[in-house]
Design a binder for these strands. Structure first.
Lengths: 219, 219
DNA sequence: CCCGCTGTTATACAGTCGTGCAACAGTCGG
DNA sequence: CCGACTGTTGCACGACTGTATAACAGCGGG
């Protein structure tokens, strides 16, 4: 029995590989089937490394949750970042991007849901969840405020936050159901649906957001 | 070693007890920690019964998912059933009830999310998910249509479905985040937020739904 | 009252779980 | 080219997993 050959990787590379393998396994087999052995296999290492890098499997899974949330919020904010100077277009881009590929992803929704299910009882999860949610909410508020102001609608902080909360719910809900692909409707309808809903929700004139729909075409 | 005393229950009672215990365990410990022994313990029986009633643990968990979805849709439709004849009020009640106790429940959201995370890969789950989603969507369409018609807004099937999809997203998203109680805002604000958003989304005149807010006070 | 049906328990089994630990082997500085 | 540091492996351990099966006991029908 010959010993497995291996390469010594930089600390961050190995951590990254393990986290990615953890998410892969959880996405495919759930927290159940994501055993230390299976994750190590997927990462191309032996289970002992988990202890070496994360102390325990639970700790690694927790780190994977944080890593996932980072990915999700980064991706969301990226859509707004490369938006034009036009506040309407920036908001439309942000909202639309969240219900289109690559955001619309079964893998991401499955992972997100799996972790959400443990937020209440797993120590440390609630902080990760709250931070991600807050970040998303604040990004939304930053995008909504100038749009409201430009159209002469009330934009005090309380109003703005309430609208951001509703908008976040709208986006999240459509993101989840759209990603799961139950076949009840064509997900390609989602950008139009969500932008029309957002216009109404914010009491914006017709086409304020919808006219930027063509700009959302997948590059 | 004395043998455990027991009562012979009606088939449905025992099944119900096991399903409820299954959901309890999954809610508290996730699909991971919900072992056959722990579930049996919670139900006050021995693990062997699982095989007797469901054939296997996986089959029981699947049945528990279907059982949960039935509970959730029943509860949602109940809110609309005991609504008055006024279409506006019926819609307002339905929407509002979904972001208030008892619908706003960490246990329910945790369970829902845990199962959603497995919809993609676990055989049979997607059907349960789709059926529940379709039922919710259709209930929403039935409530939205008369409201649109009464206010002279376009109410063709395609428009109606699109609005129901958006409304469902809005409700789901707020239900999830509101139930998790992250402390970023007071969940008591949700009924007002969701009704205001729904009015805008459907392009209804101000206060069409919001004026029924007082009628939603927890009985 | 007691027999028989069957819902229920108890036990055993092979497999997998997470992880602690000692030995190994890559890799880098000298 | 060699020595030393440490990232990585391999294995062992006890606990726990799901489930098969045989023995038991509650309960209704006669």
């Amino acid at each position: 029995m010959t010993r497995k050959t291996f390469r010594r990787l930089a600390k961050d590379d190995r951590r990254h590989g393990l986290l990615e393998a953890t998410l892969d396994c959880i996405g495919e087999h759930g927290l159940n089937g994501a055993s230390a052995r299976r994750i190590a296999d997927r990462a191309g290492v032996t289970p002992g490394l988990i202890r070496h890098y994360f102390g325990s499997k639970d700790e690694m899974v927790r780190a994977a949750y944080a890593y996932l949330m980072e990915q999700l919020t980064d991706r969301a904010e990226e859509a707004a970042r490369d938006a034009s100077q036009d506040p309407d277009e920036a908001l439309a881009r942000f909202i639309g991007a969240n219900v289109m590929t690559p955001s619309l992803s079964v893998r991401h929704v499955s992972l997100w849901a799996t972790f959400i299910g443990r937020v209440e009882s797993e120590p440390g999860y609630s902080t990760i969840h709250r931070d991600g949610y807050r970040e998303f909410l604040e990004a939304l508020e930053r995008l909504i405020h100038p749009v409201l102001a430009a159209h002469g609608r009330p934009a005090d902080p309380a109003t703005c936050q309430g609208l951001a909360i509703a908008m976040n719910g709208l986006i999240d809900g459509l993101w989840i159901e759209g990603s799961l692909g139950h076949g009840l409707y064509d997900p390609a309808r989602l950008p139009r649906i969500v932008l029309a809903a957002a216009e109404g929700l914010l009491r914006l004139p017709d086409q304020t957001l919808l006219r930027h729909l063509p700009a959302l075409a997948p590059t």
